[in-house]
């Protein structure tokens, strides 16, 4: 342990490359990051900025191409596949955007799965899983299958699964990405509650609003960390706040078309908008090509 006693993650100039030759992409570009025990870190950044790759490296799912990575004081480069699996099992809890529950197992069995790999006897692990589900408020859904629950409930189950082994670190890759605002709030409050018990939490989000819950926000772009700021609990981070007010400059129409740059370059843009608004939304959606033509005529 080179740094403080409490450092759980130490990345030093970690890079990750994908592909070969011309197709080579730099997913992480010399990232250095230290996360101490009991931190609540939000990672923000546009798509393709390397957030998920960072999560995968930290979560010992992926290996960095260059650089030094110490997990809980141990150099990750020297860990074999089985050692990594055991660390994932015992000290890391994963929460995914797409939940990643096994559809053929009941909620209870899903939560108990990490314990099964630890070798906990069946009766005991189901009891522990049941206790965890009680903690996330889903005890009455134990024998449901994931497909029978709402997205928010499924994510709660995934959180219970991540917590069942009492991990030091919880890695959540866009945990609320597929959820509505009510469910998102529920999930984040659950994570906050868990954080109070002493776990470190690392989560990725696109929503600046959610930085309220974090104690520290890391911004990424093109595989590198651009900014790293501490925030007060309950307040949106300053940089995130700025982003919040810059985003709405794009219009809904731009998002629908998905080719905003091209559309902005086309003259008589107001005329096109007016025509679209006059026509029924349905028709415009069905024949987007015609819309362009009529705009040009006018």
């Amino acid at each position: 342990m080179g740094f403080g006693v409490s450092a759980i993650i130490e990345l030093r100039e970690v890079s990750k490359l994908y592909g070969f030759g011309d197709a080579m992409t730099l997913a992480l570009d010399e990232v250095s990051l230290t996360i101490d025990q009991n931190e609540f870190v939000a990672v923000m950044g546009p798509s393709g900025s390397g957030k998920s790759t960072l999560m995968n490296v930290i979560g010992l799912l992926d290996r960095p191409t260059h650089g030094e990575f110490k997990f809980n004081g141990r150099s990750a480069a020297r860990l074999g596949a089985d050692q990594r699996a055991k660390i994932r099992r015992d000290t890391i809890g994963f929460i995914f955007q797409s939940y990643n529950l096994l559809p053929r197992l009941t909620v209870l069995e899903n939560v108990a799965l990490p314990l099964a790999y630890k070798g906990v006897p069946a009766g005991k692990r189901l009891a522990m899983a049941s206790h965890m589900l009680e903690r996330v408020g889903l005890q009455d859904r134990e024998y449901f299958y994931p497909g029978q629950l709402s997205g928010g409930q499924v994510q709660c189950v995934a959180i219970a699964r991540a917590l069942v082994n009492d991990p030091k670190l919880i890695i959540a890759d866009e945990p609320t990405g597929n959820l509505d605002s009510v469910a998102s709030r529920l999930i984040m409050e659950l994570l906050t509650e868990i954080h109070k018990t002493g776990n470190s939490i690392l989560f990725v989000t696109h929503n600046p609003e959610l930085t309220r819950y974090a104690s520290r926000v890391v911004y990424m772009r093109d595989g590198a960390i651009m900014q790293d700021e501490a925030t007060k609990f309950g307040e949106v981070a300053a940089t995130a706040l700025k982003q919040m007010y810059t985003i709405p400059e794009r219009t809904v129409d731009d998002d629908l078309a998905g080719v905003s740059a091209l559309m902005h370059a086309v003259p008589q843009k107001p005329a096109v908008r007016g025509a679209t608004a006059a026509k029924s939304g349905k028709k415009a959606k069905r024949k987007p090509a015609k819309r362009k033509k009529s705009g040009a005529k006018k």
């Binding site: 979560g59 799912l61 596949a81 089985d82 699996a85 055991k86 994932r88 099992r89 015992d90 994963f94 990643n100 529950l101 096994l102 799965l113 990490p114 790999y117 630890k118 699964r161 082994n165």
Partner: peptide, 16 residues
């Protein structure tokens, strides 16, 4: 394959 990935992420060793 995805299921295998989930199981491995949760700590299943190759042997398991």
């Amino acid at each position: 394959m995805h299921e295998i990935g989930i199981r491995k992420a949760l700590g299943a060793t190759n042997h398991q």
